[in-house]
């Protein structure tokens, strides 16, 4: 269970350009839920996702996941928590451009010293699912936007995460690939994975397996609809 307890995020505190990106957000997501975050650009979607993944810390309030107060934990614990539980698909991909697609995908597992055979099998599955088998050894900087996005998605799934956080995952995918991605989301949901997706893509809004749609505006929750 993910619980955002009255969280606020303020950037550049006490500076002339102080900005409240999130204001007193109070949300609760159950395990296995598929949640869509929507809202205009700059409404604070990405900020909220990064707080939930403990990539940054809220100024007020706290994030609690499965009884762990992760926004209060030291860095090494949050890293370990991410490695074991979270797959994050970043809005700007955050791939390492000078590494090959394959090497980017294995990045989250490197510190765990994985078993080579199992790793190969897992990566081959992912590459196949996302139709980038032939791009395996191509440097990421030479891939198209859509291909990069699929590498980023594969990387987020490599550790079989319990929570998937996706920031505009379909922004660079064409209609067919977007539908493929939705299929994957659906099957992950069937495996009881908790999924949070921030998106503008209307494709997500009327899916019948979406549990919650949260709408943000200027850093505040203005609507939570259940389907």
């Amino acid at each position: 269970m993910i619980r955002c307890k009255n969280i606020s995020k303020i950037f550049n505190v006490n500076k002339p350009n102080e900005l409240t990106a999130l204001k007193e957000i109070d949300l609760k997501f159950k395990e296995g839920e598929l949640v869509i975050l929507k809202g205009a650009s700059g409404s604070g979607k990405s900020t909220l996702l990064s707080l939930i993944a403990a990539l940054s810390k809220p100024n007020v309030g706290e994030v609690i996941i499965d009884e762990k107060r992760i926004s209060k934990m030291p860095d090494n614990f949050t890293s370990l928590f991410r490695r074991e539980n979270v797959g994050f698909i970043f809005q700007k991909y955050n791939l390492i451009p000078t590494l090959s697609a394959y090497d980017n995908i294995i990045l989250p597992l490197i510190p765990t010293n994985p078993n080579e055979k199992q790793l190969h099998k897992r990566i081959d599955e992912l590459l196949k699912t996302f139709c980038i088998e032939d791009k395996k050894d191509v440097l990421v900087k030479n891939l198209s936007g859509g291909e990069q996005q699929r590498v980023a998605i594969s990387r987020a799934l490599i550790n079989n995460p319990k929570i998937i956080i996706a920031d505009e995952p379909t922004a660079n995918l064409d209609a067919k690939l977007s539908l493929d991605f939705i299929e994957i989301i659906k099957s992950l949901k069937n495996d009881a994975t908790t999924i949070l997706i921030a998106t503008h893509d209307p494709l997500f809004f009327d899916l019948d397996f979406v549990d919650k749609i949260v709408e943000l505006k200027n850093g505040e929750v203005i609507d939570v609809s259940h389907s």
Binding site: N76, S79, R83, V86, F88
Partner: peptide, 16 residues
């Protein structure tokens, strides 16, 4: 710097 940030976001501990 960015690379270090990415690795950390992907679950690398500071020690790693």
């Amino acid at each position: 710097k960015k690379e270090i940030g990415i690795l950390k976001a992907l679950g690398w501990k500071i020690d790693d």
